[in-house]
């Protein structure tokens, strides 16, 4: 599904990721965890094609990434970022349906309502603008937007980073529910081991651009491979 072969990435002599070889499991949730600067966001952007590896090869949907045809590829992967990144000048309905517009210039359809219902947003929100919604509601809109074309792959870059604990819990449950209804491959970047434990089937631990451990979630927590992994677990679970 998603595979990296000896991938490195760096700017100006400084490597952010060094020699990664990973194969992510299809239809499972993998949490990518690490401290700030460990290279987790870079990893997602490499998979999305926003960044190109300086060495190695990225394959998505069992094909080496073709950087000249990223649009078709990106339409098959939902992408969520911290702070939602909703388009402030578009209504909620237009935001959710933007991928449809990119694909074939289609207008928001019944799918918008369906998704909003799924994440518990009233359909009366459709004509509203993002600024009229709370942070948690905006985050749900972000999920709807990422799921609009029902992509087989979902990339989530700390989607819950800026949320309060209660809203975060709600959204986490939403993700569990979604995965239960229709499994898909999800890559979830987080720095919170508890979140990883709660949501993920697998955990990839990065530290300074290198893989520390990549295993089933339960194994990582019960048998941390390195000191860096242990530190992360302690830091998250203590707080």
């Amino acid at each position: 599904m998603v595979e990296l072969t000896e991938v490195s990435h760096g700017y100006g002599g400084q490597e952010v990721l060094t020699n990664l070889t990973i194969r992510f499991q299809e239809n499972k949730i993998t949490a990518i965890i690490g401290k700030s600067g460990s290279g987790k966001s870079t990893l997602l952007q490499l998979i999305n094609g926003l960044l190109r590896p300086s060495k190695g090869q990225v394959s998505v949907f069992n094909q080496p990434l073709n950087y000249n045809q990223t649009t078709a590829l990106r339409l098959r992967m939902g992408y969520m970022v911290q702070g939602t990144g909703l388009f402030p000048h578009l209504t909620i309905a237009q935001n959710i349906a933007i991928a449809g517009k990119v694909r074939d210039n289609s207008q928001p359809g019944a799918r918008v309502n369906e998704l909003m219902e799924l994440v518990g947003l009233p359909s009366s929100y459709q004509p509203k603008y993002p600024y009229e919604l709370s942070g948690g509601e905006q985050q749900r809109v972000g999920i709807c937007r990422a799921l609009y074309l029902n992509p087989p792959l979902l990339l989530m870059d700390e989607p819950m980073g800026a949320l309060d604990p209660i809203t975060r819990q709600d959204i986490q449950q939403e993700i569990v529910k979604l995965q239960h209804l229709a499994p898909r491959t999800m890559l979830l970047v987080t720095h919170d081991m508890r979140e990883a434990k709660k949501l993920a089937d697998f955990i990839l631990v990065l530290d300074r651009g290198k893989v520390q451990q990549f295993d089933r979630a339960s194994n990582v927590i019960s048998e941390p491979a390195t000191q860096a992994v242990r530190d992360l677990i302690n830091a998250s679970l203590d707080s």
Binding site: R74, L75, Y79, V81, G83, G85, F87, P88
Partner: peptide, 14 residues
Amino acid sequence: DPLVKKVADGIGMT
């Protein structure tokens, strides 16, 4: 906002 630009790229806009 650069984040919004990044999202636009990430969605697959030309």
